[in-house]
Each structure stands twice: as structure tokens, then as C-alpha cells.
Nucleic acid binder design. Structure first.
Lengths: 194, 194
DNA sequence: AATAAAACATACAGATTGTACGCAAATATG
DNA sequence: CATATTTGCGTACAATCTGTATGTTTTATT
């Protein structure tokens, strides 16, 4: 049985990422020693440090994969929408669905910002969701006074979405959070039309 | 020169907390070895482990002190206010002022949630600010339909405040964030009066 | 003054990270 | 196709860090 080098690399890389994800979610980044990761992946630390520069690089790969999955789910979830309002609410709902995957909020919203820093975090497409929100909000603020507030408004609401995702993942009342978000968006919309 | 035991304890505890704060802010919790902390504090690791159960306990003490300072500043900042709207906006402004102290956003909003967990974090008066916000929002939603959304709305806006504080600390445009928050609050107020 | 207890320093054991080195399988080269 | 070379990965090692155990000095107790 002989595998091509590319296959081998891809297989062990993914095994490490999968095992790492499992342990990072269960115990957190700091409390997860690399020996445990490689054991779970069925390799040795030699393989880990061959494919990744250090432990943090493996974590980054896990987070990147997770962020990509979220971006994909949102892309798919935002099918045909009618009004800007519907688009925003549907986007929020898709985001909550995507973030409902177990461990995802811990990885993306708690561990990653601290481990990678909010700087690396922004570069890492963590704001793909934010960009989507931004374009949705643009339809709302466009033409109004305070169109200049698009940036701050996007950041604020994005943060609110994250908080809602965290709360929902923690057993919070999803309907309540969705209603609250609708309220904020509707209020914002009205307020800009005076 | 002989100091009372209470004085000694208080002095070295505070020296450790101060040195720890400085290093945690500069390098982050994980990248700060205890030998560096005790050297900066002018003691040895023996003193550290005599006064704190472990490194995390020292970090917790730093965060507690920081959170208390924020709570105090907000308390003082919310002097005589007239309307609920003014109360909320003044509270936000006081919060931003308090969080503008260097390193505070990193400690309270980035490191602490990851190191202590959002669980310990909530218990740790991190939501003193949130409680204040909640009571301010109560005046807004009171009597309206969707009074039941007070909880989610508080969480969402609290998160938005945190994000604004982070952005401002990172050199963001404070006036823009304050305006955006005013917009959200005003919109919410109007929306509930229909 | 003598004893107890608290504050702290020193010494040590275990664990963890990253690196150096070695070997075997796969790919490149003539 | 044979040999050289690179790639994947396992093993061994050195440096560091954390927490504990043990000693020493200073303050409190009686």
C-alpha cells in the first residue's frame, strides 16, 4: 500500500486538525498538550512539527477551517431574499445556524481572539460574516444622513450577533435574541427615515 | 524597620498584582512566565505561590481589580441625569472613558474571557456594567410590548459597547461609535412606541 | 523569652515546547 | 532502472515553565 506524498500530507494534516479541534473545543487551547493531540491523531510530534510551525499554527489552521465552514454556510443560507430587512434577518438566522455547530462559538469567539489576537483574527476572514452584514446594512443606511456611520454600525451589530450566537450556544432563548435583533434593525431603519 | 504582617502581605500582593498587570498587558497571559512577574515585583516565586493559589489566581486578582476600577468610574461618571436617554448615553460615555485606560480592553475583553472562561467572568462583576445598562434599558422597554426582550437586548447592547470600547482603544473614531450607539438606542426607543 | 505562626526564599520534580537528528518511503534525475 | 535527493515522520534531547516541598527569617502570641 503506497500513498502519494500529497495524499499522505493531506491525510495527516487533516488528522491533526481534526484531533486538534476536538481537544481545543473540549479543554481549550492552553490546556491541550501537543502529545495528546498527536496521540489522538495517530501520529507523533514529529509529524506535527513537520506540517506546522508550532502549536499555534495548528490552532490557526483549525480556526481557518472553522471560519471557512461558517462563511460557506452563510453563503448557502442566504438564498433568494426580497427586502433588505429580510436579507438581514435571514443572514442573522443563517449565522446562528452556522454557529450552532458544537464548539464553534468557543473556538471562534472565545479562544481565537485571545490566542491569535484580534489583529490576526480580522485578517483571517473572521469578518467574512461582517462583510456580509455590512453590505446588508448599506441598503439600510444608504442615502440617509449618517451614512458615514456604516462602519461603526456594522461593527456594533456584528458584535451583537456574536454575543447572540454565544448565548444561544449556551442554551439561551434563540427566538428572543432573533426578536431583539429584529427590533434593533427595525428601529435603526425607522430612525434613519425621519 | 519592621512592618506589620498585614502591611507586608498587602504590599507584596499589590506589587505582584501591579507587576502582573503590566506584563499581562504587554505580552498576554500565556506568554508571561511567573519568574518575570516576581522579578518585576521584587520578590521570588515563593511569595507568589504563598499569596496566590496559582498563576491563574494572580491573573484573576488583576482582572478583579480592573473590573472594580471600571465599576467605580462608571458609578462616579453617572452623576445627575435627566432623561433615560441621557442616562444611557452618559453611561456609555463613562464606560468608554473607563475602558480607555491602557491595557484595560485587552485584559477585560480579550484575555480574561479566554483565561477565566465566560462563566467565571460573569460571576466576577464583569456585568456590573451590564447591570447598569439593564436598568437603563428597563426605562425604555417598560410598559411596551416586548418588555420580555429586556434580557436579550441588554446582552446585545452590552456586547456592542464592548466592541466599541475595543475599537476606540485601537484608535477607532470614538465620536462615530457614540453616534452609532445613540442611533441604535433612539431607534429602539421609537420602535417600542408604535 | 520561648513558642508558634506567618511571610518568604530556595530546591526540586514533572510536564511541555521546540529543535536536532535519523530513517524510510517517495520522487526526481541521468 | 539505478541512484541521488527530497519529503514525511519518528526518536532523542535541551530549555523552560509550573507547582510543590522544604528550609529560613521575621512577626505574632502567651
Amino acid at each position: 500500500m503506497s500513498r502519494s506524498n500529497r495524499e499522505r500530507t493531506e491525510a495527516t494534516r487533516q488528522a491533526l486538525i481534526t484531533a486538534g479541534r476536538r481537544l481545543f473545543v473540549d479543554r481549550g487551547y492552553a490546556e491541550t498538550p501537543t502529545p495528546d493531540i498527536v496521540t489522538a491523531a495517530g501520529v507523533t510530534r514529529g509529524a506535527l512539527y513537520h506540517h506546522f510551525e508550532d502549536k499555534k499554527a495548528l490552532f490557526r489552521a483549525v480556526v481557518e477551517q472553522e471560519a471557512a465552514a461558517v462563511a460557506l454556510a452563510i453563503e448557502a443560507g442566504s438564498a433568494d431574499v426580497t427586502t433588505p430587512r429580510q436579507a438581514l434577518l435571514a443572514g442573522a438566522s443563517a449565522y446562528f445556524d452556522a454557529m450552532a455547530v458544537e464548539g464553534r462559538t468557543r473556538l471562534l469567539l472565545l479562544e481565537a481572539p485571545a490566542v491569535l489576537g484580534p489583529f490576526d483574527m480580522a485578517a483571517l476572514d473572521g469578518d467574512h460574516a461582517e462583510a456580509s452584514l455590512r453590505s446588508g446594512l448599506l441598503d439600510v443606511v444608504k442615502g440617509s444622513r449618517s451614512e458615514a456611520l456604516l462602519g461603526p454600525l456594522t461593527a456594533l451589530l456584528s458584535s451583537a450577533f456574536d454575543r447572540a450566537a454565544l448565548a444561544i450556544a449556551g442554551g439561551g432563548d434563540r427566538a428572543g435574541y432573533e426578536a431583539a435583533i429584529a427590533l434593533l434593525l427595525d428601529g435603526l431603519t425607522d430612525e434613519l427615515r425621519r
